[in-house]
Design a protein around this nucleic acid. Structure first.
Lengths: 256, 256
DNA sequence: ACGTACTCTATACAACGTACAGAGTGGAAG
DNA sequence: CTTCCACTCTGTACGTTGTATAGAGTACGT
């Protein structure tokens, strides 16, 4: 699985990079640097956008910048920190429309859609570990903005954080499922329909519908409704309604 | 990211393995096999249980069985298929208590808890891609059982599948967040509290609370309430209530 | 002019999954 | 019984990853 974002970091250095602290100390000796941290991050994001996290290798980023792999380590302590910078940059660039006047359901739904768009633009973001987030300006701005969507609902601070975490977890969950499907299609070179066509006749030999009546009926009904086994559009729309209804119940109980 | 479960499979062979089809064809030439597929799967599961998917290497499984790595390929076409077998075996072994008589909320909550227990017993299961699931007896039994929890609610087949997917997505989401946290603690050798203690004073230099008032207030409130940044127990309890309330709304609208 | 802090490069290592080639084994065919 | 060859198991090897380490070249402060 994903063993990214480890590495022996120096927290101070990482935070300086995240907040783009001006270079500490005076003028630098030796040759000028030919690149910038931002250029490295940009190249890395482009690479990950087009080929997923698998394509994001230090060698790949270096090649895209016309340098040797080890050169990157002059700009960034390691891959883990590069990922933190990429993630915070992606957060930073998210469009944040102001819905202050709108009803809360609209505001919260907007947050869900903003995150869905983030995952559409940068699919690799959905696969990154969320514990120990990059403590940069991007994350902070995002958090501030999204918490505001829950204004005036009578939730206390802990509930507000839990509600947001719940909402974001849902969106990420759908995004990951979607990604899994695309990845499966890509590296099996088989669409869901083709994959199923290859397996169905073989499965028929060992699968006894009488033993799994519900599974047989519901499974084929769901498979026909959306085509392919998973319809991320439907899963998102269906789930978001449930999430909002669930939160509505909490809001109602707090307003009482 | 996770590039497991790919590999150039022969679907027929994989299905035969999953359903434990008796060896095709007549008696075999050459030396008897010293192991069984089940033994290989068992060893692999033990390894993954104790050390996570990172520890699950063909070399590791082989060593645990006292053979050389390449020997495994006599039993299993590759790592992808081994993972499919492991996953189906884990599904197969899940305890499935019968709650036919209970009210639907209890039944659905039981499904959530069963899955949470699965992820507790086999954390690696939470990190596996879910598209293209192993079409074995374990998955089928699990699906049949879990669909039954939604009996008598007036949902059509497509809604029933969507509701289950939504529920399972939620449980997996919490399990993954939990795993991320444990992994971060393990390979940074820092508890959440220690990690925060290392970052807080440095962050204070660049983070302006006036610029992020909500984030500062809610973040610290949430951090204090649970200790550490993420309390999986609380996230599960809180989220499950919302999920059930959200589904209740759907059920109510269908019953009308 | 010189030393040294710095940038960039080349090489190397351990781990992974598994392709490939070979050695040994024992049931089926004569 | 002998012969054959399908089969099991092994040893070696390759390409890929992140990055440690050592060295070559550069240009600022003295």
């Amino acid at each position: 699985m994903v063993k990214e974002r480890s590495g022996a970091d120096d927290p101070a250095r990482t935070l300086e990079l995240l907040w783009r602290e001006p270079d500490r100390g005076g003028p630098r000796r030796g040759p000028k640097q030919g690149l910038t941290v931002d250029a490295v991050v940009r190249a890395a994001v482009e690479l990950a956008d087009s080929g997923g996290l698998d394509a994001l290798t230090m060698r790949g980023v270096a090649q895209r910048l016309g340098v040797t792999p080890m050169t990157l380590y002059t700009y960034v302590p390691g891959k883990a920190e590069l990922l933190a910078l990429m993630l915070d940059a992606a957060y930073w660039r998210m469009p944040r429309t102001d819905h202050t006047a709108a009803p809360w359901r609209t505001r919260v739904a907007a947050v869900a859609h903003e995150n869905r768009d983030l995952y559409r633009r940068h699919p690799w973001v959905a696969t990154l570990p969320t514990a120990r987030p990059p403590l940069g300006p991007g994350l902070m701005t995002k958090y501030e903005h999204e918490l505001a969507a829950f204004d005036g609902l009578g939730l206390d601070d802990v509930e507000r954080d839990a509600a947001l975490t719940f909402l974001l977890g849902f969106v990420q969950s759908v995004a990951r499922a979607d990604l899994d499907t695309q990845a499966a299609v890509r590296d099996s070179a088989l669409s869901d329909a083709q994959w199923w066509a290859a397996h169905a006749p073989l499965l028929a030999k060992v699968f006894d519908p009488a033993r799994f009546p519900l599974a047989a009926r519901v499974g084929s009904a769901a498979g026909e409704a959306h085509q392919g086994m998973h319809d991320p559009e439907h899963a998102f729309a269906f789930g978001l309604e449930r999430v909002l209804d669930g939160l509505a119940q909490l809001v109602a109980s707090r307003a009482r």
